[in-house]
Computed example of a mutant assay.
Amino acid sequence: MTAKEIFHKTMPFNIAKLALGGLTVLLSALLFAILMGIGWLFGEGGMIVTFIIWIFGTGFIRFVIMHYLGYLVKAGHIAVIAEAVTTGRIPDNQVAYGKAQVTKRFLTSNIYFAVDKLVSAAVKQIQKAVGKVGNALDFIPGMGAVTGLAQFFVSISLGYVDECCLGYTFYQKEQGAFKSAADGVVIYAQNWKPLLGSAAKTMLKVILLMVVVALGIFVPIGLLFKVLGWSPLAAFLLACLIAWVVKYALVDSYIMIQMMTVYMGVAPNTQITFDLYSKLCGLSAKFKELFQKGKEEPSQPSYAAAGTAPAPSPAAAPAPARAETKPVFCGQCGAKNEPGTKFCGSCGARM
């Protein structure tokens, strides 16, 4: 199923996002009218003060609505997208399915928020580390522009990697949410080439879509307010809010589906190399925290086995002789050990 098909078939979630964005705009507009009325009573100085208050008030309204409602709508949408990409079908009652999957996977919204924040912070820290490597080559003529453009591609891709990792948690149901999210970050790191290529295409789409959105919103609203003789500032602010709603509900959803389609296409077939965990832990304190929380989750599969697949049934288990010929990775520190090692040579933990 293509990204375009998934976008159209999961339209109920996009409509829900439009509704939440519309509610944000409505409350912000009402707050603006009230505060500007109060400021008008106190003259120009009062207008400036109430305008500053309105900016902070609008930010608070957006935070409350998007944090407690928007995040859960996005999580349900991600669950349905993951199902569509991996199975090729959309659940009959997709809204109910998404809600059930989020409740089953994360138990409470607080767990979902914690996983999402840790993943987002981790990939940002990893991005900064990559950026430092690029900056070290700035002495080469023209390299600054190349690395800057590359980092821009990466920043777009990393902007949606948390959604991709959350999608992987819905796919990898036999593991805890923190463990699956940590695996998701590693899978992203191992498949950076196809995902970076998708990010480059996504960048072009973002620019084109935002130009269309800006012209389609700012021009008619500006003309309307000019004809009616209303405040140009109010027209600009209203246009900004509406453009943000369209971007949040439609543009961001389409980009998220594009990235998840590529990511979920390679994730199920990716064999995780556990030595990459220690490297990412060294680059990001937040990833290390995510990794540690994954190890603390109850009923987790052994970290000593390399690979993402669940433990096979006894009938399908590989021959013991084959396991002895492969290196063993420590579940505590990720260090590589010789076959048959009982205790890790790096940290001493039992294998």
Rank of each mutant, 00 (worst) to 15 (best):
V95E: 09
A306R: 08
A182I: 01
W40S: 14
F60K: 02
S28K: 10
F343E: 13
I187F: 03
I65M: 13
G229L: 09
A309K: 11
T103Q: 15
A181M: 02
I140Q: 11
P318R: 04
N14P: 07
M47I: 15
A234M: 12
V213A: 15
N110H: 09
G294P: 09
S157R: 00
Q127L: 13
P91L: 08
V133G: 12
V161Q: 09
Q172T: 01
N14F: 09
T202L: 13
T325A: 13
L196K: 01
L195Q: 00
V85Y: 07
M143E: 08
A267Q: 06
K124N: 15
Q125C: 00
V130G: 00
P12Q: 11
A309E: 11
M1S: 04
F7I: 03
P298V: 08
V161R: 01
F170D: 01
A16S: 06
K336I: 07
G45F: 02
V123S: 01
G144R: 12
I111H: 10
L118M: 06
M260L: 13
M1I: 02
I15A: 12
F236M: 15
V49F: 12
I38F: 09
I15V: 13
L149E: 07
F13I: 02
F7H: 05
T87C: 06
A349M: 08
F274R: 14
P318Q: 03
V206W: 08
V211S: 15
Q300W: 04
A96V: 07
G57V: 08
A96Y: 03
G131W: 05
G88R: 01
A33R: 14
S278N: 12
A285G: 10
A189I: 05
A129K: 05
G334M: 13
I78K: 01
I207K: 09
Y263I: 01
